[in-house]
């Protein structure tokens, strides 16, 4: 069986198709930044994670340094246990603070890491001790209204009875 022009065209077609898949992976997608094999995991416990989702970004100084790999509920402490996979290229001190932040007013939630001053570095499987929960807008508003009502008309108990019990998020 000799080579034919038909083979050439099929070759061009298959090459174009594979090239299109590569373009989708590298130019349209973000294959380069996904290096889950080169990652170490740390955990952090939060009182309230708000709307944090798995695969949300972990940023430090605004730069993406990892992803949220797992979110679980711990029924011993009644806290959310968030597992973060961080890029191996970056190390953080042991006393790093993890906070759940929101990008923009309506944007998605991510975890911000604020580096501390310790000499020891976080290693695989470590736990971040200092965390700051997500700001829940409803609690914020009810706190505000409550303090406004308490300060405005001298200590009328009426709005306090109607306001929901504020839990957790007062900093």
């Amino acid at each position: 069986m000799g080579r034919t022009t038909l083979d050439l065209w099929v070759g061009v077609f298959v090459a174009a198709g594979l090239a299109a898949l590569l373009v989708l992976a590298f130019k349209v997608g973000n294959m380069r930044s996904v290096n889950l094999s080169d990652a170490y995991t740390v955990t952090a416990d939060f009182d309230n994670i708000g709307g944090l989702k798995p695969r949300a970004a972990v940023k430090s100084a605004g730069v993406v340094v990892g992803r949220v790999s797992e979110i679980a509920f711990d029924d011993k402490t009644y806290e959310a246990r968030v597992t973060l996979s961080l890029d191996k290229r970056y190390t953080f001190p042991k006393d790093t603070i993890a906070a759940i932040l929101t990008s923009g007013l309506l944007g998605e939630q991510y975890i911000g890491l604020d580096a501390g001053g310790s000499d020891k570095k976080l290693a695989n499987g470590d736990k971040i001790q200092i965390t700051q929960s997500a700001v829940v807008l409803e609690n914020l508003i009810s706190n505000f209204l409550y303090s406004k009502a308490a300060g405005g008309s001298d200590k009328s108990p009426a709005p306090a009875a109607g306001a929901p019990a504020t839990q957790g998020t007062q900093q």
């Binding site: 989708l24 130019k27 349209v28 997608g29 973000n30 294959m31 996904v34 695969r55």
Partner: peptide, 19 residues
């Protein structure tokens, strides 16, 4: 245009599922 696209399109979740 390109950087937001690359940040939002996940290879495993979007490209592979489409494939």
């Amino acid at each position: 245009f390109w950087s937001q696209m690359q940040a939002a399109v996940d290879v495993r979740h979007d490209v592979v599922n489409g494939f």
